[in-house]
Write a protein that binds this DNA or RNA. Structure first.
Length: 297
DNA sequence: CGGTATGATAACGCCCAAGT
DNA sequence: ACTTGGGCGTTATCATACCG
């Protein structure tokens, strides 16, 4: 389930080479660290090294490691990445990195899952998220995904089959849709029912893992989607509300000019969606649910 | 400028009561 | 019965700062 993780380890005792801001490479913790220079001042601003295809940077007394756990461990992220595999991957990461990974701080993480579905059909109905329209994800002059940029998190869905075909020249041989949430942990930690993701240890807390999985599904639910509802079954108010919510431009202005009424309209729309029986959207939701459930093992 | 961090504040969802 | 507006608790965004 986990994709990109940005972890930071605080070094208690820096080697003398770092304290002296040594300008040549040195060995520390069995790794060769090379200085990074500030191009303007030519001063040492940190050190970098790599181990097992992972880049590490040391700045001040913080070693940071930003990478996709799944891609590092499995080579790709078009397959499921289950809890058991996550535990194994972190165990391996801990054995490879020169510090205790489990105690490292985590500020940002991405969770995602894949389902065997045609991406375009899923993406076409996506209208907005919290009132924001998606940015198209482009590759080879083609839109292969949609991404929502919000302050504390990003949500994206895309054609994984297309992506690995154009970027990695790999043919998966079946349609794979990937859905992903990239989020700052503060958003997870400062809410009412906080999940509490502070260190890597928290990532393998089964209860928290489950909550993150739910968070991913919850974001999918929050995406405003074009509804296909049997129109003749709606009353006048519902028809008007439906039309309003399917036009993002008018909706946006409506929200500004009639904010109070907007809230009432939204309520009607929410109820409308609940009673809608869009089989396809329900099917996609179920697929995601099932997929996420499978990553729990 | 883009990425990150942080506290302040605006916006939202929900409920209820009052007005039309 | 439908609409409007206030209160409240929660969440998202804004403003600002820092860094390279």
């Amino acid at each position: 389930m986990y994709d990109t993780l940005k972890i930071k380890h605080q070094v208690i005792q820096l080697p003398k080479e770092v304290i002296e801001q040594q300008e040549s490479p040195f060995f520390w913790k069995g790794l060769k660290w090379t200085p990074i220079f500030n191009k303007k001042t030519n001063q040492v601003k940190g050190y970098e090294t790599s181990v097992n295809n992972l880049d590490l940077r040391l700045k001040g007394n913080i070693i940071s490691c930003n990478n996709s756990l799944q891609k590092w461990y499995m080579g790709n992220n078009y397959q499921l990445f289950t809890y058991v595999q996550v535990v194994e991957a972190l165990k391996k990461l801990n054995s490879v990195l020169p510090f205790n990974v489990y105690n490292a701080n985590i500020h940002y993480l991405a969770v995602g899952t894949v389902i065997e579905e045609e991406a375009q059909a899923i993406l076409n109905p996506w209208l907005s998220l919290n009132g924001k329209t998606p940015i198209p994800m482009l590759g080879a002059n083609k839109q292969y995904g949609k991404k929502f940029y919000l302050t504390d998190y990003n949500v994206k869905g895309y054609d994984k089959t297309f992506e690995v075909k154009t970027h990695n020249r790999i043919n998966i041989g079946k349609p794979i849709f990937r859905f992903e949430l990239e989020i700052y942990t503060r958003n997870l930690n400062k809410r009412k029912n906080a999940i509490g993701i502070y260190t890597v240890k928290d990532l393998i807390d089964k209860k928290k893992y489950k909550m993150l999985a739910d968070e991913l599904l919850c974001k999918y639910d929050k995406i405003e989607k074009e509804q296909s509802i049997p129109l003749s079954e709606l009353n006048t108010k519902e028809k008007e509300v439906l039309a309003l919510f399917q036009n993002q431009e008018i909706l946006k202005q409506y929200k500004i000019d009639h904010s109070e009424t907007y809230r009432k309209r939204r309520k009607v729309y929410n109820n409308l969606k609940k009673s809608s029986n869009n089989k396809y959207l329900t099917h996609v939701k179920e697929q995601l649910k099932t997929s996420v459930k499978h990553t729990l093992f």
